[in-house]
Design a binder for these strands. Sequence first.
DNA 1: TTCAATTGGTTGCATTTGCAACGAGAACGC
DNA 2: GCGTTCTCGTTGCAAATGCAACCAATTGAA
Lengths: 150, 150
Amino acid sequence: MSQAVEFPVNSLVFLTNRVGRLLANEIRKRTALDELGLSAQHMGILVDLWVKEGVRQQDLAVSNIKDKGTIARALQSLEAANIVVRIPDQEDKRNKLIYLTHRGRSLREELLPEAQQTVQEATEGIPEEDLAICKRVLSQIYQKFTCNHK
Amino acid sequence: MSQAVEFPVNSLVFLTNRVGRLLANEIRKRTALDELGLSAQHMGILVDLWVKEGVRQQDLAVSNIKDKGTIARALQSLEAANIVVRIPDQEDKRNKLIYLTHRGRSLREELLPEAQQTVQEATEGIPEEDLAICKRVLSQIYQKFTCNHK
DNA sequence: TTCAATTGGTTGCATTTGCAACGAGAACGC
DNA sequence: GCGTTCTCGTTGCAAATGCAACCAATTGAA
């Protein structure tokens, strides 16, 4: 019972959800995203592509936790902005494989430093050890779900 | 440099953002939210109200990390569904103070168990200690921002 | 081979969202 | 007092989102 009373604001859903949007907002405000004509949604896709290119739209949808239709439209605008290209897969003609352009790759160096700086300030005063544990826990949950779902 | 390379998927922004949406989605799928005519956005507001009633729409916007216009519209539909009431503040007529109805309070017992169950399964196998640290870290970040911002 | 079931991508639709402009009320200055 | 500035809530608008329906390509089974 006492656990139930404490639940909401101490729950992992509550905390991850709000801190996630908090940090994302902060980064959007402080980076040049707007001037580049990009939004936070685009950045989410870019992060995935910076890790691995040549993936299908469906893969991006799963890892981004967004609908495939949403991803399709976001990629349309990213392609129009010359940041990604969608190349039809010769082996399976249903697929389109997504690659970054030069511009897309260079955005990494333009955007990441400010993002890191934001996180840096947000986590100031928190022991490095605790942070590491926190990230490991979240990573475990994320991977459990994204692996199951594919 | 090696830190920069590792950044994206190991970053606190990335992890909180995705795990947050992941868990919220999972809960939405598994609770009776849809049948009640509610969405995840409504649940976010309800969580705040379960903790404290009689707050202004502006307060809800800050803690929910949403635009005040968004909150205004969400509260309109919640009021239409007889879940909250918006009472004009006599002391400062600009404000409307938000309270739960009986229905709104009873929703807590209907929705929380499934949410807890979802988190339970998502965190299965993760040491209780690590989870506690993770939550404490996130809570510190959340409170730092929401306090500063108001 | 041929037909059913599945999968990937696109599109229409209704809802949600942030931003900006607006109006009402309050606080502060003069 | 009176006007300026600020805050709170509302609304219009464009963008983002999930869902469902759709088409094309692949897979699997009869």
